[in-house]
Design a protein around this nucleic acid. Structure first.
Lengths: 205, 205, 205, 205
DNA sequence: GATGAATGAGGATTCATTCAT
DNA sequence: GATGAATGAATCCTCATTCAT
C-alpha cells in the first residue's frame, strides 16, 4: 500500500521534473506529451493518469515550483525589516535569488504558452495583489506617497521585476547578481533619475 | 497598370487591416490564414502572394503599425524638451496615447505568438536600445546617476511600460489616461517611495 | 470459506447490478470498466476476476436478465392456453410486462453495442427460433395459414415486437400498457387492416 | 471555374461511393477516415473539406441514398392505387426492391453506429410519420379499424419491415424476393393467423 | 482474492501552404 | 494576378487490460 503510494508519488515527481526540463529547453508548445513521459521513464498514458492534460502538468509545475518563492515573500511581508529600504532590497534579493536557483522554472513561467493559457497571468496577479496590499499599508504609514494609484504602481513593480528577471535568465552574463539587485533596489526606491547616492548601497553594508 | 498597382495595394491594406482585427480578437495562434483572406475579401492564395507566410503578415502588421510610435519617439529624442521631467512625461504620453489609439495593434504586439516568434522581442529590443542610448547620454550630462547598469535600467523602463500598457489595454476602465500618465512619470522620476510631491504635477500645470 | 463464497457472489451481483445501471444510463460503448467497478465498490482488477472482459459482463447481464423472460415464454409454450387468441395475447402480455419491469435491461439489450457484438442478435435468434417452432406447429394444426414462410413470419413477429418494445421503453408515456397489449395482439391476430371488432377484446373479458 | 466545380463534385461523389462501400463492408465504427479517403483517391484532409467529420459523411450517405426510396413512397402516397390490398403490396414491393438494389446502403443504415448516432433513427421516424398519416387517413375512410393507436401500429409496421429487410440483406438466399413480398403483404393485411387464402394472392394475379 | 498504477496501440482531425486552372 | 481545392504531416488523448504487490 505504502510502497504503491510512494511509487506513485515518485512517478509524479519525475513527470514534473522532466516536464520542467523539457518545457524550459524547447518551449511548452514544442514539447510533446509523449516526450515528457518517455523522459520520465513511463508510458504516455501514465502522464494522463497524473494530470488531466499537458496544461494541467504545466500548472502543477508552475504552482508547485513557485510556492517556495511565495512562501519567502509572505515571510518577508509578515516579518518586515525595520526600514523601508531594507525591505525593498530584501524583496529584490528574494526574487533574484529564486530566479538564480530555478532558471528552468522561470523559463517555463515566461513561456508564451504559460501566458496564453493564463497560468503565468494567475501568478502575476497574485504577486500584484501582494504588492498592492503592501502599497496600501505603506500609504497609511505615510511611507509611500499617496500615489495616483496603488494598483497601477503594483502592476508597474511586478511588470518591471518580471521583465528584468526574464531577460536575466536569458542573458545571465550581462550583469552580476549583486549589481542586478542594486539596480533594481535603486530603481524602486528612487526611480531612474535621482542624482544622489543610491540608498541601498548604505543599507547593504 | 497604375490601376492594377492601386488595386494591389488596396488588397494588401485590407489584409493588414483584417489581420490586425482578427489577430487582436481571437489571438494569432487561433486565427486561420483562410479567415483573414476571407475577411479581406480575397482567396487564401492571394494572401500568400502578398506575404511569405502567416508570420510575415504578423511582422508587417506590427512593424508598419509601430512605425508611427517609433517616429514620435525619435522626434522626441531628436528635439528633447529643455527639462528632464518634461522629457519623461512626454515619453510616457507618447506611449499611452499610442496605445489608446491603437488598442488592436497592442493586443497583437503582446500576443504570445508575437512573443514566441520573436517579433515583439525585436520591437522591445529596439525600444530598449533607444532607451539605453538616452540613458548613456543622460549619464554624461550628469542628469542620471551613474546607475549600476544602463542596460538593466533600460530593460526595466521598457518592461515596466510594456507591462502596464498591456494591462491597460485589457482593463482600460481601471484608470484614466491622465492618472496613468501621471503615475508612470512619477514612478520613472522618483521611484515608488519618494515622500515628496510628484514632480510632474508642477510640470503639467 | 462459505463466507468468502458469499462475498464473492455478492461482488458479482453488484457488478451486474451497477453494470446494468450504467450501461442503460450512458450506453455500453460510453461506459468505462473502471466506472462500473467503482460503482460496485471494487477495484477494476476485480471486475476482471469475475468476467473475462467488458463484453463478458454485458453477456452476463443480458443472458441472466433475459432468463426470466425466456422461462415465462417456455412455460407458455409448454402449457398453451386452449384458444389461439388467448395464446397470442398472453405472449404479448408476457413481453410487455417484462419490459415494464426491467426497463434498464431493455435499454441494454437494444444498445447498439449489444447489437454490434451480436449479443442481442443471439437473443433475437433464440426468440425467432421459438416463434418458428410455434408457427410450424400451428400450421400442422391448421391454426395458421400455410404462410409463404414460417421463418420470415417468425422474424416479422420478433422484429415488430422488439421494435415496439424498444420504442415504448423510450416513450412510456405515449401509450398505456393495456392499450399497447391490445394493439399488439390485434395486429398479430388480424393485421393492420381488418375492419371487424378486435378479436382479443372479447377474449380479455 | 466550371471545371473546378465539376472536379469538386466528382471528389465528393467518390467519397460517398467509397464510404458506402467501406462502411457496409467493415462496419462504420471499424472504418477509418483515412481509408475512405485513400479508396476515393484523395488525401484525408480532402474528406474533411467536404464533410465536417466521419459522421457527417455517414449522414450524407444515408440521407442522399434514402432519398430515392422516400420519393417512391411519396409518389405512392400521392397517387394511391384504387384498392387497399394493392396499396399495401406496392408499399412492400417498393421497399423490397429498394433493398435489393441498394444492399450496401441498407447495411449502412442498419449499422449500430448509424443507430447510435441517431442517423437511422431520424430516417425511421420519418417513415413512421408517413405511415401514421396514412393510417389516420385510412381510419377516416373506414378502411382501417379504429386501432387502439395509429402511432403504435405505425411503429409496428416500420419496425417489422426494417427488421425483416435487415435480416434479408444478410440472408438473401433464405427466401426469394417474390415470396418475401407476398409474406409481408399478407402479414400486413391479415396478420399472422388468418386461415383464409391470402388476399394479395388474388391481387398479384 | 483484491488492488490500482501502469501500459501503449490506435485514429480523428487541423491547417499552413501549394499549384493547376 | 487571382483562385480555392487539395495536401498530409503531426499530435493529442483514451481506455481495456495486465500484473506486481
Amino acid at each position: 500500500m505504502n510502497a504503491r503510494e510512494r511509487s506513485r508519488r515518485e512517478t509524479r515527481r519525475r513527470l514534473i521534473e522532466q516536464g520542467t526540463l523539457l518545457f524550459s529547453e524547447q518551449g511548452v508548445a514544442e514539447t510533446r506529451a509523449i516526450d515528457i513521459a518517455r523522459a520520465a521513464g513511463v508510458a504516455v498514458g501514465t502522464l494522463y493518469l497524473h494530470f488531466k492534460d499537458k496544461y494541467d502538468l504545466l500548472r502543477a509545475i508552475l504552482f508547485e515550483g513557485i510556492e517556495e518563492l511565495l512562501a519567502s515573500l509572505r515571510a518577508l511581508t509578515e516579518n518586515p525589516p525595520p526600514s523601508l529600504p531594507v525591505f525593498v532590497r530584501r524583496h529584490c534579493e528574494i526574487m533574484v535569488f529564486f530566479v538564480e536557483e530555478h532558471p528552468m522554472l522561470c523559463r517555463v513561467l515566461f513561456d508564451p504558452e504559460s501566458v496564453r493559457t493564463n497560468v503565468s497571468t494567475e501568478i502575476t496577479e497574485y504577486l500584484v495583489e501582494m504588492q498592492k496590499k503592501r502599497h496600501r499599508a505603506e500609504i497609511k504609514k505615510k511611507e509611500l506617497a499617496s500615489m495616483p494609484d496603488p494598483l497601477v504602481s503594483a502592476h508597474a513593480v511586478v511588470g518591471m521585476m518580471l521583465h528584468i528577471l526574464d531577460w536575466w535568465t536569458r542573458h545571465p552574463d550581462q550583469i552580476t547578481r549583486e549589481r542586478l539587485i542594486n539596480t533594481l533596489t535603486s530603481l524602486r526606491l528612487s526611480g531612474w533619475y535621482q542624482n544622489k547616492p543610491c540608498i541601498e548601497k548604505d543599507v547593504s553594508s
